[in-house]
C-alpha cells in the first residue's frame, strides 16, 4: 500500500513536470513581445532591460527554462505584467472564489443527478419515466454552459430581478474573509452555482442510471427482494453499488468542472481563476496565464490521485500493487 502511494506520487510529480514543460515552451513561442505593452507607457531601454531580467526573460531559452523550474519549486510564479505584483498574490484569493462555486456545484450536481438517475434506472424499462428521464438528461447535457448562464441571467436577473447577475458582492460590501458569510455574497452566489449544478447534473444522472440498470438484474438484488424488503430499499441497494463508478468519475470531474467553470465565471463576472486566465490571455500577461493554467493542471493531477486512493478504500476488490 505504501509502495503504491509512493509510486503514484512519483508519477504525479512526473506528470506535473511534463505539463509545466509543455506550458513553458508553449508560452515562449508566443509571437508577441510582452514588453511592448510597457513600451507604450514610455519606458526607457534600461528600465525595460531591468524588467526583462526581473521577469526571467533574458538569456537563452534553456537558461530561462531552468530558472523557471527553479522558481516554480520555490513556489515563485513570477510577477504579473498587468497588475505589477506577484502572481501568487493575484491568484490566491481567486482560488477560493472558484472553489466556492465549484465544490458545492459539483456535490449538489452529483447528489441531485444520482437521486434522479436512480429513479430513472429503477423505473420500468421502456416506460414513460425512463424514456422522458433519459431524453431530458441527454438534451440538457447538450446545452452549452454559457447558454445555461445566459438563460439564468435573462430569466432570474433581468426579467424577474430576483438575483444580481454581476460579480460577487455589491459595491461597499464587506471585504476580506468575512464577506463569504454575508447574505449579500450568498445572493450573488446563487445564479452561478445553479448554472454549475445544471451543467454538471445530467452526466451524473446518466451514469447513475446505467449503473442501476446494470445492477438491478444481479443475483444479490433478487436475494434482497426475496427477503421481502420494500422496493425503495431494494433500489437503495442497487444505487449504493452503482455509486462506485460515479465516485471515480467525480474526482477527475472536479478538475474538469473547475476548467469548464471558466465560461460560467465569465458570464456572471465571477472573479475566479478561470476568468482571470481568460483576461490574462487577452492582456498577454503570460506569467499570470501560465500560473493560472498550472494551478488548474495541478488540481486535475491531485484529483486523479485522490480518485485512485479513495477507490481502493471503497472497493475491497481492488488490490494495490
Amino acid at each position: 500500500m505504501r509502495a503504491y502511494i509512493l509510486r503514484r506520487l512519483a508519477q504525479s510529480v512526473l506528470v506535473v513536470w511534463a505539463v509545466t514543460t509543455i506550458m513553458f515552451f508553449m508560452f515562449r513561442v508566443m509571437p508577441a513581445d510582452p514588453t511592448a505593452i510597457l513600451l507604450e507607457r514610455g519606458l526607457t531601454d534600461e528600465a525595460r532591460q531591468a524588467l526583462l531580467e526581473q521577469w526571467g526573460l533574458t538569456g537563452s531559452m534553456w537558461d530561462q527554462y531552468l530558472a523557471y523550474l527553479g522558481n516554480l519549486i520555490q513556489g515563485d510564479f513570477g510577477s504579473s505584467f498587468f497588475y505589477r505584483k506577484p502572481v501568487w498574490e493575484v491568484l490566491w484569493p481567486l482560488i477560493v472564489n472558484t472553489l466556492w462555486i465549484a465544490i458545492p456545484g459539483l456535490l449538489l450536481g452529483a447528489a441531485i443527478g444520482a437521486a434522479i438517475g436512480t429513479a430513472v434506472g429503477w423505473a420500468r424499462r421502456g416506460g414513460k419515466l425512463e424514456r422522458s428521464g433519459i431524453f431530458l438528461a441527454t438534451v440538457i447535457r447538450g446545452v452549452p454552459n454559457f447558454v445555461i448562464g445566459i438563460a439564468l441571467l435573462t430569466i432570474f436577473s433581468s426579467t424577474l430581478g430576483w438575483f444580481p447577475g454581476f460579480g460577487m458582492g455589491d459595491p461597499g460590501a464587506t471585504t476580506g474573509f468575512a464577506r463569504y458569510f454575508t447574505l449579500d455574497f450568498l445572493h450573488h452566489l446563487a445564479l452561478p452555482l445553479i448554472a454549475v449544478i445544471i451543467y454538471f447534473m445530467p452526466e451524473n444522472l446518466l451514469l447513475m442510471r446505467s449503473g442501476v440498470v446494470e445492477n438491478r438484474t444481479e443475483d444479490y438484488i433478487e436475494l434482497v427482494r426475496a427477503k421481502g424488503v420494500p422496493q425503495r430499499r431494494v433500489a437503495w441497494h442497487a444505487a449504493r453499488n452503482s455509486m462506485l463508478p460515479l465516485i471515480t468519475w467525480l474526482f477527475p470531474a472536479l478538475a474538469e468542472t473547475i476548467a469548464g467553470i471558466v465560461v460560467i465565471e465569465i458570464v456572471f463576472s465571477w472573479p475566479g481563476v478561470g476568468r482571470e486566465l481568460v483576461l490574462a490571455v487577452t492582456r498577454q500577461d503570460y506569467p499570470l496565464a501560465q500560473a493560472a493554467f498550472f494551478l488548474l493542471a495541478v488540481m486535475i493531477v491531485l484529483a486523479n490521485l485522490a480518485a485512485d486512493l479513495v477507490y481502493g478504500k471503497l472497493d475491497p476488490r481492488v488490490v494495490y500493487k
Partner: peptide, 18 residues
C-alpha cells in the same frame, strides 16, 4: 497520462491565443 492532466478548455484558450 500526461495529456489527461491538461485541463481542456484552459489549454484551448491558451493555445488558440498563442
Amino acid at each position: 497520462d500526461i495529456a489527461l492532466s491538461i485541463p481542456t478548455l484552459p489549454f484551448a484558450i491558451v493555445a488558440v491565443a498563442l
